[in-house]
């Protein structure tokens, strides 16, 4: 077991623990902070896969912009800690059972999948995650979706302003 595998297991365990803490913490602000830790762990996974551009974009966009937006909204609407109504216990139990059966079913499917046997992911090598090949692909083959996404952002901005002004 070399050092890369140890890093993989440590990051995975950290991400899973933080994701569970997102669910079970009562205060929404604590949930946001735990979710930021999950995003940092996923960025660590990207760095392990040598997808450096996506690692940085993940930190800037998710942990930087989106989670700050969440924090801002939580502080704006001032949710009191004890005012959040809890679901009944058996509804929670059914939710956990549904999620757990989805997980076990998918894991058993992946275990039987013959096309995946022997396929490995090379860690810490390869150049496709660097900025140079990604930029070339983005601005040669995918330039039309890139421009369309700017229209999407414009419409999202107009929609958010319109909803917020009512």
């Amino acid at each position: 077991m070399n050092v890369l595998e140890i890093i993989f297991y440590a990051l995975s365990a950290f991400a899973l623990v933080c994701a569970i803490m997102v669910l079970i913490s009562k205060n929404p602000i604590h949930s946001v902070l735990w979710l930021i830790l999950v995003f940092f762990a996923i960025s660590g996974h990207y760095i392990l896969l040598n997808a450096q551009f996506l690692a940085i974009v993940n930190i800037i966009v998710y942990a930087g912009a989106i989670m700050v937006l969440f924090l801002f909204v939580i502080m704006l609407i001032n949710v009191k800690k004890d005012s959040e109504p809890q679901k009944q216990l058996f509804v929670k139990l059914i939710g956990v059972i549904a999620g757990g059966s989805f997980l076990t079913l998918s894991i058993s499917l992946v275990k039987q999948a013959m096309p995946l046997v022997g396929k490995t992911v090379p860690l810490k090598e390869g150049t496709i995650g660097l900025i140079h090949p990604l930029g070339k692909a983005l601005f040669n083959d995918y330039v039309v979706p890139f421009e369309i996404s700017s229209v999407l952002f414009l419409s999202a901005m107009v929609g958010a302003v319109l909803i917020g002004k009512k």
Partner: peptide, 29 residues
Amino acid sequence: MPIQYYIYFCLALFSIGVVGVLTRRNAII
């Protein structure tokens, strides 16, 4: 690293998200 380990990890993370959507009532969560 075998691809199966990544699939298991992502499935676990996805299932935690599914459980959260099913069990919480706070819209932000």
